[in-house]
Design a protein around this nucleic acid. Structure first.
Lengths: 170, 170
DNA sequence: ACTCTACATTCCAGTCTTGACATGTCACCA
DNA sequence: TGGTGACATGTCAAGACTGGAATGTAGAGT
């Protein structure tokens, strides 16, 4: 259950409402840990209930601005330092590769060609994002840029692999 | 819901029991689409119910050997050719990177050092697997090797990225 | 005869996730 | 004043996933 920690992480930077957080998920975190609106609001209510966050202010339109508590920050630090990432990564993309044998070689190469295109687009999107953001020196900027670099390298790697793979067929 | 297609894919190679499939998931597919025993048996029952697979033979100890039907094979091909992979990939590893700012630089570098080690171990495990399997010319061998190569490149990429990232801190 | 391991399946409670539906408010502009 | 779009939250059903408990059989070795 890392959604909890994703929310704690975002709130550790600054207080925010559910709506704010939803926007943050749609932009910065979308590639790493997608979450829907209903999930976010549900989890915020739970976090509030367990005292890891608290309603710091209320605004117009029923806006509730949540802030992380000391307890929440401790939980976030604990997650970062004491627990190992081990979420089994599921890859829709790679799963299909295993079964390309049921298709014709042409179709299989077609699938890999789509992956190449997908990787190129992913790369381009991230490159544009990299340029559009004006990076500060604050923590989220530094580590956001590091995560973005990961995305760039990942897409480049996948592209090259898909090209190599297409050459392996038949 | 790709577990369904993972099972169809494995059964397209040869008939198998739930137990056989569980073993296959534990070995070959574990890195790509992990599934638990209860999930597999539940899904097999559903697939049998919708006619995509059928009980081809019964063996000792209540063993039920499932085989893919023509309808199932059609569904598998449809999934491979007509639907685009778009499963949002969740990355526990990368999510943490976003929030390393709440730690000290030393702790953050410590996390990246663990990622380096994790990547090295992943690489080594796959390299050993690559050597231990005696690869045939059949489809699952060809595409299994291609998927394995992906894993090797992925781990190498992640290692290099983590090294670079550690240098970016502070 | 006995025991142990691998084989083999079924069921369940609880949680996570998806994709809606429902409801209402504020600010701006025409 | 009326309409629109962004702001803002809450709830629900259905399906996916986790982790475990329960149950039993066949075969291989001692």
């Amino acid at each position: 259950m890392s959604l909890r920690h994703a929310l704690l992480g975002l709130l550790s930077d600054r207080p925010a409402s559910g709506y704010d957080l939803l926007k943050l998920f749609e932009t910065s975190l979308a590639n790493v840990w997608p979450a829907t609106q209903s999930q976010i609001y549900t989890e915020l209510t739970k976090l509030d209930g367990t005292g890891l966050i608290t309603v710091a202010a209320e605004g117009p339109r029923g806006r509730k601005e949540y802030a992380i508590t000391d307890e929440g920050l401790a939980e976030l630090r604990h997650w970062l330092t004491e627990t190992r990432p081990q979420r089994n990564t599921r890859s829709d993309v790679l799963l299909r590769v295993f079964f390309l044998g049921v298709l014709t070689p042409e179709q299989a190469r077609g699938y890999l060609a789509e992956l190449i295109e997908m990787s190129d687009q992913g790369y381009e999107n991230l490159r544009r994002l990299m340029e559009s953001v004006d990076w500060d020196d604050d923590d989220l900027s530094v580590y956001g840029r590091i995560a973005l670099e990961y995305g760039l390298r990942f897409n480049a790697m996948r592209r090259e692999w898909a090209e190599w793979a297409a050459g392996q067929i038949k």
